[in-house]
Structure formats: C-alpha cells, structure tokens
Design a binder for these strands. Structure first.
Lengths: 296, 296
DNA sequence: TCTATTATTTAGAAAGACTGAATTATTAGT
DNA sequence: ACTAATAATTCAGTCTTTCTAAATAATAGA
C-alpha cells in the first residue's frame, strides 16, 4: 500500500557507487571490488536506470560523480555500513556468539542444579541475550510448543500424555533427581501404608505424576489435602503438620528447620530433560546453551 | 578492501520482509505487494540464504518471524524507509522540483535583466538549491566547461574564438542588450572619429569584443586607457574625465549623476545567451531554470 | 472425513549480471 | 600531427536470479 514502486536497488550496486566515489578511476574501483571494469560500468548504469537520475558525467577520460549525486552517495554509504553491521550480527548468530535465547526451567534447575552452569555460560558468552523464565514443566512445554521459548529444562513427561505433549519436541535426558518422603514432626506411622495424607504439587504437574506413581508402586496411599507448585510452601505445610510431602532434598532440607526424611532411600525420582522443538533450524546460540545445561 | 563479501541484499527482499512481518499471512503480504505468494516465498528464502540466518519458522499453517529476526526486521525497515526517501528525492530531481543548480551569470543579468525572473523561479520552486555565481562571460564559460557550473547566462562569444570555446556548449539566444557611448562632461568631440580615448572592459572580455567591433564598424578609434570588469567603475571613470565608455544604459544612467549618451542610437549591442554543456543528460532542474531565464 | 485456506515446490520464461573481446574517446609523448 | 597508452564503454555469450502459473503438501474447521 505504501509502495509506489520503490526502486529495487541492491547492496552490491550501492557498494559499486561507494567504491567508484572513493577511487580515482573506475578501473581502480573495479579492482578493489574484484570485478572487471565492464561489470562496474554496467552495474552503475543499472543503478542510474533504477534511480532514474543521472549520477555520473564524463570529464575528459574520467567518469566522475555529479555533485547532485552527493545525496545518493550518502545514502549508499549509510546502507552499506548498515548492511555490514547486519552481516556481523548474522555471523554472530551463526556461530552462537550472540543472539537471543529464551530459556525456561523449573525452579530447582534455575536456583540449584544448573544455577552455576547458567552463570558460567553467561560469563563465557557475553554477547548472549539470555531470558530466563521459571515455571512448572507443563507450562514450559506449552510455551516451547507455541514458540514463546527456545529451550526448556523440565521434568520429562510420563507416558500418559505422550500423544499430545511430545509430538513436536525433542528431549535430551539431563540428570535424575531423587525425591524423598518427609513426615510432619508429630507423625508416628510405622508402615508405608500408614503414610499420608499428602501435600503435593497441583494436579497435572509432571512431578506429581512421578510422585504418585512412585508411592503407588511402593504400596502407599496418595491422598492430597493441599497443593502448591512451590516446594518451599509444601515444606512449610509439612512443618505445620498439614500432611506429608515428597520433595527434592534441597528445598526440604535447607533453611532454619530442615525436614527429616521418613525413609533413607528415595521414594521416587524425576528425570530432568532439556527440551527443544524438533524439525527446527539449528540455532547455534540455543545449541550452545543446551550443551552447557547437559554438561552441568 | 573493507569487503569480506557483504551479502547482496535487494531492497525488494527487505520490502518482502517488512510486508511479511506486518501482515497476518503471507498471502495477504503478497497481495499487498502485488506479487504471487510463490514469489514472496522464494524471495524470502533467498533473503535468508544470503543473510545466512533462518528468519522464519512454521507455526501450524502460518509461517512466522522468529523473534531472533527482530534485528533484521529493524534493519529492513530502516533501509526501506531510507530508500523511499531516496526515491522521493530522485522524483524531485527528475521533475525539476528539487536539486542543485549552479547558475553563473554576468552582473547585468543577475542584478537587472533577469533579477525578477530568478526571484520568481526560486519562489515557484522552493525545493531548488540555486547557487548563483556572478563573473565575466569568459570565466563563466570556462567553469561551465569543466563542470563547475550547470547553466550560464552570458554574452555570446564572437566568432573569433569559436573553435576553442564553443565546442561542447549549446547556446540559446536570450535577449539583445543595446550599448551606448558616454562621453565625459568636458568633452566636445564633433565627429565619431574624435571620440575617445576609452575606458572599457579588460582584454578578452566578450563585451569588449562587441564594443570594439561596433566602434570600428562606425569609424571610431578604440584606444583603451583604463580597464575594469565593473560597469559602475567604468561609469565613475567617465565621470572623472578619464575617458569615454560604451556601456549598457542601466549602470551608466542610474545613480545620483547619470551619464548622458553621446549619441541617441546604440553603438553596439551584446547578445545575451543561455549556455549549457551539450551532449549531457537532461537535468530537469537545469532545464526549468533555463526556461525561466529565456522567458524573462 | 471433506473442504477451504495457507504455504511451498516445480517448471519455464524473462530479466539481470558477469567475463572477455572489441570499440570509442582522450591524454601524453615524440 | 602522429602514435602509443589509458579510461571507459559496448557487445556477445553464458550463467544466475526472479517471476508467474500450476501442482503439491499441510493444516484447521465443519
């Protein structure tokens, strides 16, 4: 709509113009560009034709810029300079030394397991614009699927929802995190069948799926009386005597009053994976960060 | 030398990118550009190939810009906007509504004969950058020849120097200016043979050639005792009694003490012409000003 | 499942851009 | 004035780019 046939100039033509203006003769300009004088003549003639304005005039056996062309030359210089900047940016993109990566992780990954890896990667790749998003695994994968995130570190989904969740996403296993059972202080359960009731992650949470599967397999009932996505909140609920919880060791056993494990061995474990959209062009910056996360 | 193979982007490709980013679908973008969706697809693929960075990704049946491409889009917008400005400038150049015109005239033209025409033209064409240069005819034609001026209004050269002066220059006759003889107050010559001695324009001046030819034809001797390019200076010399002069009426007969003509009829006339370099591309701004000068 | 919409791929035609050779025009030297 | 050297352009041929039109693939909605 806003386009009354804009002249289709090429960067190369503008380069020709800049070189011609900077060189004493066209032969010199052509040599500096690595083309024949013939190519330069034809290219500049095409440029003039497209702009619709005569830019050069012959003065003796030299061909020189007309003073009227000063504005065109200034334009050419600007565009060539900008394009040079763009090329530099693209080079950075290709080699992964720069760019934007929108990373989503669950809390445990960002604040504990890979906190140091992320910090180190940001230091190693100063040009990187890293945007970190902390949310539950399900939300992260949804965001990844619609393109709001480039890379996700989350709990690998269980087989239940393979069909709807995993179709366009590649998972690389990263590490496995043990989950322990914690009882309220006043509890005196003797067998695992007496454990509970539970405070746990909300329905739909990947971690909750893992926990439920682990407890059921061990013969413990899984009745949930309170929910939260935040492990610290669940820990406080246990401390208040609201119920039992299955949690990673770190949020449960840090702070002024650490919880104590109801059993030495973990009752479940969650598999943490790095997820990317599949079938997508390789983005070096994303790949580099994925490597850093996988390596730890 | 400063050129590690810069990508040869075209304005059209950048336009495609801007349109694709601004439109909900590619079909719409293609329609707004007046091309087929196929052309848009291929053009954008070529752009990606040249930049070397993937800019789009498929999301369902739509193809959308990747967020990483924001910088490229910004670049494209800048270049397209600048090119639009350039196109506007070029349009102005072509139609003569803008541009630079370096006009050279002799003094009489600029301050008298065409003063009003020049003033009016500048008013009519506000975008015009008019640079006026007042000098004797010979200098003006030299400047015109080497390209320091675009248009000259001067005294048409006599046939003497046709070979060296007129080869690359076109003259359009503009008007003819009568030159009158003025005698000092104390003079009492009776026949033209008694006229003189003279104060006149310097040797080489076109006007002096005309004057000399006119006086010789009328049987008057032409001995020059003082020279100046400025008619006002010549007038003052006459007033001081240094000699006679042949001058245009205006500078001779204006001022507090106008000179009086030695004879009613002019003793010579100079042909004022508008001169341009020949064999040169038509410059609308120059043509327009030439028209204005010729019309008066 | 069927259908309309969106985008891409392919094939062929037209335009553009390059090299190398021939040509024109201008300057400098004899 | 003549000749050689230099600057730039034009020309012919080839290869590349870019378009349209038609065929194909994929998706969303009924």
């Amino acid at each position: 709509m806003t386009d009354p046939n804009l002249p289709n100039l090429t960067v190369q033509q503008l380069e020709y113009l800049v070189a011609a203006a900077a060189s004493p003769t066209r032969a010199v300009a052509a040599a500096s560009l690595g083309v024949t004088p013939s190519a330069l003549t034809q290219g500049l003639a095409e440029l003039e034709r497209r702009i619709g304005v005569t830019l050069f005039e012959r003065s003796g056996r030299l061909t020189r810029l007309r003073p009227q062309a000063a504005d065109v030359l200034a334009h050419a210089r600007r565009v060539v300079a900008e394009t040079r900047g763009l090329a530099r940016w693209a080079e950075g993109q290709r080699t992964g030394r720069a760019g934007v990566v929108r990373l989503g992780t669950i809390d445990a990954v960002a604040v504990h397991h890979r906190a140091e890896a992320i910090r180190r990667h940001r230091q190693d790749v100063p040009g990187l614009d890293l945007r970190l998003n902390v949310a539950p695994s399900g939300e992260l994968l949804d965001s990844l699927r619609v393109g709001d995130l480039d890379l996700v570190a989350c709990v690998e989904p269980t087989r239940h929802d393979l069909s709807t969740q995993l179709d366009g996403i590649d998972f690389d296993h990263c590490f496995t995190e043990p989950l322990f059972a914690y009882a309220p202080a006043q509890s005196n359960a003797e067998t695992m069948a007496d454990w509970g009731p539970w405070v746990s992650y909300p329905r739909g949470s990947h971690t909750r799926e893992v926990i439920a599967a682990g407890l059921v397999a061990a013969g413990a009932p899984f009745t949930v009386v309170a929910e939260s996505n935040q492990p610290e909140v669940l820990r406080e609920m246990v401390r208040l005597g609201m119920g039992w919880a299955v949690l990673p060791a770190v949020p449960a056993e840090t702070g002024s009053e650490p919880l104590k494990r109801a059993r030495r061995r973990p009752v479940a474990e969650r598999r943490i994976a790095v997820a990317r959209r599949s079938g997508l062009p390789a983005d070096a910056a994303v790949e580099a960060l994925a490597e850093a996360l996988l390596a730890g």
